[in-house]
């Protein structure tokens, strides 16, 4: 158990989403769901974040933005694809301008389905992400110990 689990800070980016999942992500912060109970803060700044919540099917223009945000996050970090668009492209999969799924751009660690995702599902997803985060932290430590 590391402290990563007690204070996972998130960053959220809307990569070509319809807003539905985005407002549910925001709703998680609000009184009804209040994820700050778990120490989760929506930082909005990649350099402070541990978990990258990404919604939407990712279009051409967004590729670079998503990569930039991902690169600017300090390790260990976890990417959570929120919603069907982010997991597979959803109903917009066939559109000419979308890549369909976040994993086409950056490695995704947790997939959260739903259209739109329910806040409870997001919380579940983040809990899963924390597990992955801790795993990555142990790996990172091992890596550091080796070198």
């Amino acid at each position: 158990m590391t402290y990563l689990a007690k204070s996972p800070w998130i960053i959220h980016y809307d990569a070509t989403s319809c807003n539905g999942c985005d407002i549910e992500v925001l709703a998680c912060l609000t009184p009804m769901y209040d994820v700050e109970r778990f120490g989760i803060i929506n930082t909005g700044n990649p350099k402070h974040a541990d978990i990258f919540l990404i919604t939407g099917s990712v279009n051409e223009q967004n590729v670079k933005v998503v990569e930039n945000i991902y690169n600017q996050m300090p390790n260990p970090k976890v990417v959570v694809a929120i919603g069907i668009c982010a997991t597979s492209g959803g109903i917009f999969r066939e559109c000419y301008n979308v890549l369909g799924g976040v994993d086409k751009v950056i490695p995704v660690d947790v997939y959260v389905p739903g259209c739109a995702v329910r806040p409870e599902a997001i919380i579940d997803g983040v809990v899963k992400a924390i597990g992955v985060l801790e795993e990555k932290h142990t790996q990172m430590k091992k890596g550091a110990a080796k070198s």
Binding site: D14, F92, N97
Partner: peptide, 11 residues
């Protein structure tokens, strides 16, 4: 703008 353009009218 253009980060959310999916081109869904084409669907």
């Amino acid at each position: 703008i253009g980060w959310v353009h999916r081109g869904l009218e084409k669907l």
